[in-house]
Each structure stands twice: as C-alpha cells, then as structure tokens.
Design a protein around this nucleic acid. Structure first.
Lengths: 204, 204
DNA sequence: GACCATAGCACTAACGGTTAGGGTTTAAAA
DNA sequence: TTTTAAACCCTAACCGTTAGTGCTATGGTC
C-alpha cells in the first residue's frame, strides 16, 4: 500500500475504470434495461467474467462510489472535532451528501435510477449497509455511552434523513426539518448507567 | 366479493395455496437457495408459468402475507379511537407485529430469511413500501396538521423501529426504547401554520 | 340448452444476469 | 531464471423470469 503501485495494479484499476465508464455511458445512452452485461463487456473489450470479477452485479456498475459514501458517513463521526456534538456533525455531512446528489450534474444518473426498480432496490439495500457501518462507528464512540439500540436507531434515522430529503420537494429544508426531529430523539436517550464519567448529555 | 365465490375462484385460490404451501415446505426442507422454481412447480404439479401468474417472484412465495402487514399498519392509524394520539397507537401495533415475528413458531422461517441475501433484500424493499403506505395514511389524517416531510419521517421511523427491534437482543425492550425516541421526535414537530384550530400538539 | 368471452393453466423457447470450469498471459516474487 | 499467482479469456451452463401460443372449463347471455 505504501509503495508506488506496480504495473499490475495500475492495469487492473484501468480495466475497472474502463468498464465502469463504458457501462455508465451505455446506460445513459440507451437506458439501463436496454443494455445487457454482454453489451458492456463487448464495448469495453473485456470478457463477461471480467466484468463480474470487478463488480458484484450489474447494479453495482452504477453505484461505483459506494465506498465513498460509507466512509464519509463514518468519518463524519470518528473524525469530528473533539467535543463536537455528534448529531450536528452528522447533519452537516448528510446535508453535503444531499447537495451532492441533487446537483444538476447528477440529475441524469438519478433519473436513470428512479426509472429502474432494480436500481432503486439496490440503492435501498446499500443504504442499510451504510446505516450498519454508521451504527458501528457510533457504538464505538467511547464518550457517548448510549445503549447500542439507541446508537443503531440514530444511524438508521440519519440515513433515512438522506433518503427522505432527496425525495422531498426542497431537499435542504427537509434535512433541517428531519434533523430537528433527530436532535429531539437523541436528546431523549439517556446515557447508559455504566459510564458514570459523563456528567451530562455531552455527546448530544 | 359479497356473493359466494364460484368454483373458478375457489380453484384459483386452492392452486395458489397449494403452490405457497409446497414452496414453503420445500424451502424449509432443503433451503431456499437449493430449491428452484422448477422444483416448486413440479412438486405442486403446476407449470412454471402458473407459479409466476400467482406470485410476482420467487421471494414473494415466502412473504405471502405481505398485505396483512401493510393493512395492519395503516389501520392502526386510520381506525384508532377518536382523539387517541397517533404515536402510541403506532407503538402498540408495531409491538404486536414484533411479537408476532419473534414468536417461536416463526423462528424457522426467519432463520431461512436471514440465511438468504435475496430474501433479506426483498424484505427491506417491502418495508419501504409499507413505510410509504403508512406515510400516506398519516398525511391523510386531517387533525394532525404536520408537514408532509414530518409525516413521512414518522412513518419511516416507525417501520425502522420494527426492523431494529426484531434484530435486537430484547425486541420488546427495543420497541420501548425506540418509541421513546420517536415520541420525542414527533413532539419536536410543530403543527403546520395553515391549521390554526389545533391549539397544541394534539396529535402526539 | 347452445354460445361465446375469458380466466386459468400448460407448454415450449427464449432472454438476461450470473457462475463454474479450465486455460493463457504476464507481472512479480524467489 | 524459475516459479507463482493474479488477471484475464472462453465456453457452457444454471436459474429466475417472460413472451407466445393454445387448450379447457367456467360463468354469463341469448
């Protein structure tokens, strides 16, 4: 990881990128359902099996930056300034993600996703995975001392906020409104009794 | 619907039931992934196309009572006692659903679902549909006068409570804990300004 | 009772995503 | 150099799902 990447890894990354680019281009040109995996493979000049060695499924070709999303969420929790309350940090990150996804440049892709049940379902499933990662990050925060259930609930609510806001008429206002509810929900949780070193709701 | 069902409809219902029973039996005997649609069709003595004329997908064979769930949720909202606050009514219904799904008799089925990614994904997708139905029911409640975003958020949170509680170590305690958070979130929403006949948060 | 429209079901064949099996090249390690 | 194994290719298939077509029996109509 620390050495300059060898030719092999560069070639592999190039192949992966070529497949992803080709797939997205074809999908946007002809429509997701009208393009088969065999078309993508032929156009990218690779074998079908190579496509599936880089991407777990046809849907995964569309959500290439999956890991980015997940890392941004967990880092918003783990890398926030010391003593910064948890929920506002989450709110900031979710707002940035919503802005990113509702930008004009992303419109064609999201239009395509909305048009395909398979892609919508895949994205839902992705969100749940992200919520679980986020929940793990929140549970691991030492100074919060909330119950695991409360932490998992917060994670789920935060990811819901992203999803609900994206579908709302005014996404940014929706983020405000939903996080107002989440703040109240989190404030209603009480610190677990086995961490008596937190005199108040310091983590809110 | 009010007349005694004719022979035709009885036969159709019988075929459907036979397919569902056969499928569930085979799935539990050999495992969901080890049983193909062609196996189910052969064992139920029908054609493959007949299976798909009764059920939209292989996964749908497992979640036969889909509509029950959806109706119970929306009715918990629409059929609650007059003046009864919304959130406790939801809490009661979710608790009942969680009890129903965590009962010992349902254990084998849920074990099978947990073992199959396809089934888990299908159930997630089903939950979102239910959340949308529930949201529609809540938005339609006349005396609430909350913003559509707040209503949709409440619906999503309630369905999350079901999902999170089912996975928790103590499901019933989790329902309590999560609905405590939901109560606070809902209380933090303010009635919409265009319904001045609600002096306080009467719908909480 | 004869007649027709249609719902329900069967059969074949195929489509499209996905995977197994087995072989070839080539970067990298020994 | 020699060896190893990762990346890739090809073929053939599996499986869920659907289209096309046609048969049969049921329910309503004259």
């Amino acid at each position: 990881m620390t050495v300059p990447p060898g030719r092999r890894e560069r070639k592999k990354a190039a192949t992966r990128q070529k497949i992803a680019d080709t797939a997205l281009r074809l999908f946007l040109e002809r429509g997701y359902d009208a393009v088969g995996i065999r078309d993508v493979a032929a156009e990218a000049d690779v074998a079908v099996t190579t496509v599936f060695s880089h991407f777990a499924s046809k849907e995964a070709l569309v959500f290439e930056q999956d890991q980015d999303f997940e890392q941004r969420l967990t880092r918003a929790v783990t890398d926030r300034a010391p003593q910064e309350p948890l929920v506002p940090a989450l709110r900031r990150e979710i707002l940035a993600l919503v802005r990113h996804c509702t930008a004009d440049s992303a419109a064609p892709i999201w239009h395509m996703i909305d048009a395909s049940p398979a892609l919508r379902e895949y994205e839902e499933s992705m969100r749940l995975r992200h919520a679980e990662s986020l929940a793990a990050a929140i549970v691991a925060e030492p100074e919060l001392s909330r119950s695991p259930t409360a932490c998992r609930t917060l994670a789920r609510f935060a990811v819901d906020a992203y999803s609900l806001a994206r579908d709302a008429a005014d996404p940014e206002a929706a983020v405000d409104e939903i996080f107002h509810m989440i703040e109240a929900a989190w404030a209603a949780t009480s610190p677990a009794p086995n961490h008596p070193n937190s005199p108040g709701p310091s983590g809110s």
